[in-house]
Amino acid sequence: MVSADPTWWGRFPVALGGCLALSLGPLELWIQRRQREWYLTWRHGDDPVATACRLGTGSRPADTTDMQVTRHALGATADSVLIDVALTDRPMVLGLDTRLFLPPGQKATLYFSTPLSLRLSDGDGIPLTTIASVLPVETWFGASTIDGVLAYASRTKGRLELGELLLRRHRAVTAVTLHNRARDAMAVERIHVPMPSLALYVAQDDCTLWTNALTIERDAGGTTGRVAVGKGPPAAKMTRLTQAQVAPQTGVLHAVSALFT
């Protein structure tokens, strides 16, 4: 479960010469402020299920071997840094650990979480960079190597019970409802989730992050499907944190292979 750590997004003061240190899942980030530049250092750990969420003052490691280091020069740095939370800029292809069959006429809701990115800006709103909390793994999703889209890949158990899902601060939860209207069973191995079409919400009680709910329907013919992005927050007492990067397509028929396989 999520600990009572503070939220890791927002505006954070950084004194001149000071350094803000953030541990978020497998990501370790140091944001150092100098007179005319922000000095960023980060690395991604190997533990894919890391749950860390610590934010505070720290000092940049002296040895930056195997770390990413960038400098961002400004006229003069502001006395704070802005950390915004963002969903991935590409669709996410979620591979189920075990193939899931949905019998004809059945409906099921799967819960899974996807890694978030951090958009860093100077306190005056000048954008610095975007850093993924988990090093993204790339994949291709499409019927052939010509027809498809570049996406990020992730593995999921595809939990049917929300309580079984390990909630982590650096990931957002998405509920996908699959509805099989066809006469034969629907086999699901991978699900294509249009992350740029989703908005991000924060639960008021425990600060967990959620995206819009998704509904994927397989039509009676079995060859086409329809994806619908839920309007508004997926549950009550949630506040929208970010808007969708692109407007979601509604009512568009897709080949089943373009939604899941």
Binding site: V93, L135, P136, V137, E138, T139, W140, A153
Partner: peptide, 8 residues
């Protein structure tokens, strides 16, 4: 290698 596509 995260640059190697998972699929194909």
């Amino acid at each position: 290698n995260p640059r190697c596509l998972v699929d194909p």
